[in-house]
Amino acid sequence: MSGSTIIFYMLAALTLVSGILAVTTRQIFRAAIFLLFSLIGIAGLYFWMQYDFVAAVQIVVYVGGITVLIIFSIFLTQQAGELLPKQKIGRLLYSALAAFCGFALTMVQLCQHTFKTTTEQPILPTVSNIGDRMLSVEENGFALPFEVVSILLLAAMIGCIVIALRSKPTTA
């Protein structure tokens, strides 16, 4: 068993365990922290697959951005030390069953399926390659989605501001 394999299993374990804890713990702050670990584990998997750029984006956006945002909103809406309300046991069972069924179905399909492999020359996901492709307007370029996403982000920003604006007190 090579070091790479060991690292992979450790990352997998980190991701899944902290994922499970994130959705089961009754302390919301801890849930956020477990989510953080899970996301870091995924970033680690990207590193393991040698997709450095995506891993960096994952850490910057998810770990550094979204998680912090979530933690802030927890601070805004939650009293300290308060436990999350318990869910009904029936609901828990049903949800577990549904999730398990879906998982089992997926796994059965996965095991029966053989993926083709290609022999073509791979493109290395280096930052320069990614940058070329992202701004390319040729075939296989992603300039248009890039622009669309930038507009979407702008719209989301404006939308957030509008939603979060304190509505004017209605003059009665």
Partner: peptide, 19 residues
């Protein structure tokens, strides 16, 4: 897949919108 269904399970069982 496991992570996906963990997320689904959480979505079903959690009551707090942030979670």
């Amino acid at each position: 897949a496991a992570l996906f269904f963990i997320g689904v399970f959480g979505f079903f069982t959690r009551r707090n919108l942030i979670t």
